[in-house]
């Protein structure tokens, strides 16, 4: 009896293999069908490699991927992404696209800078692009943003709307990029509210929501009523802390980063400092489609609409404050105000 049972398990497992084999044939044809469908419009393939944050980081990786998806829909290019689970993967993932003859390979985030540089040097014929880092190679387009300018604008909002005159900033790792956020933000706050106090805090990580939550709790407990987070995945913790407090009746706000985060956290997002990574990705990718791609560095500023605040800000921010923001924006664009970077 028992032996029959055991044998039947063996048989069952064997059967699974056979079934799996059958399944394979079916979907293989499916696979080729979908490829041919994709290539009917355009043969151009664009790949993108995320950093360890992954494609659903609710931040620049996700924003970049949205840009590529948009492009896939509009222009019929084939877009693919690879997630990196550890830093060893950067080179191999980039190479996966480069060696697969993708027309353009994106590295998203400054931690891919070295990998993009190496791969670009090894494959001078390939075209690569990187967000948030500068890679000096003729076949690499480096896209950076004037985060300080955009942060100045949300600083204006915060400076105007704080009730406690205490404002927090929660950053990820203390990198020049993040310092630009902090410097611009502080300048913006002080421009409209010299009495306000800006408390700057770095958690040391971009992927630790628990650290973000703790940092936010500390800031709110110290009396801050608005926190600007520039901490990637860590920032989710800031939002969660704020949500908890709002639910228990406390009036606190978060200013989002990179994307319009009010879409995700509508109840606590005052406004967001949007980096149009999606726009940058679309624009540079378009250059490849058009055949006008050139290596080099490009910084997207307020002027280019590379940074800014989203329209949804009007939900909580009064019109007069928004008007003030527009005024400052004009002054920055015109060069009348020079926003510090540090």
């Amino acid at each position: 009896m028992k032996k029959t049972f055991k044998l039947s398990i063996v048989m069952l497992l064997a059967l699974t293999v056979v079934l799996a084999g059958c399944g394979n044939k079916k979907s293989e044809t499916n696979g080729s069908a979908s490829t041919s469908e994709g290539s009917s419009k355009s043969d151009i393939k664009i790949g993108m490699v995320t950093d360890v944050g992954g494609v659903n980081d609710k931040s620049f990786n996700q924003s970049a991927w949205e840009g590529l998806q948009q492009l896939q829909k509009d222009k019929g290019v084939k877009a693919e992404y690879l997630q990196s689970t550890k830093s060893d993967d950067y080179n191999t993932n980039l190479n996966k696209f480069v060696k697969g003859k993708y027309a353009l390979t994106w590295g998203i985030g400054m931690s891919l800078g070295d990998a993009v540089g190496t791969v670009a040097k090894q494959n001078p014929d390939a075209k690569l692009a990187i967000i948030d880092a500068v890679v000096d190679a003729p076949n690499v387009k480096s896209v950076t943003f004037a985060e300080n300018e955009g942060s100045f604008l949300v600083g204006v909002v915060a400076g105007k709307m704080t009730k406690t005159n205490k404002i927090g900033f929660v950053g990820g790792i203390k990198l020049p990029v993040i310092e630009r956020f902090a410097a611009g933000f502080k300048a913006g706050v002080l421009a409209v509210n010299p009495n306000a106090e800006v408390n700057i805090n770095y958690t040391g990580a971009f992927d630790k929501p628990d650290l973000g939550k703790t940092a936010a709790a500390t800031q709110y407990n110290n009396g801050a009523d608005i926190i600007f987070q520039a901490a990637g995945g860590t920032g989710t913790g800031v939002f969660n802390e704020a949500l908890g407090r709002v639910k228990s009746g406390q009036k606190v706000w978060v200013i989002g980063v990179d994307k319009d985060q009010s879409l995700e956290f509508p109840d606590v997002t005052l406004t967001s400092m949007v980096k149009r990574v999606d726009e940058a990705v679309k624009r540079v990718s378009q250059e490849v489609i058009d055949g006008t791609f050139k290596g080099g560095q490009e910084t997207l500023t307020l002027k280019d609409n590379g940074v800014g605040i989203p329209d949804t800000s009007s939900k909580y921010v009064p019109a007069d404050v928004l008007k003030l923001v527009e005024d400052y924006k004009a002054k920055i664009v015109s060069g009348e105000i020079k926003v510090p970077e540090k």
């Binding site: 699974t16 293999v17 079934l19 799996a20 084999g21 399944g23 394979n24 979907s27 293989e28 696979g31």
Partner: peptide
């Protein structure tokens, strides 16, 4: 692993 992939709608042999 193959069974789990099948359940998840992926093709294990591929």
């Amino acid at each position: 692993g193959a069974i789990i992939m099948l359940v998840g709608g992926y093709d294990p042999l591929l």
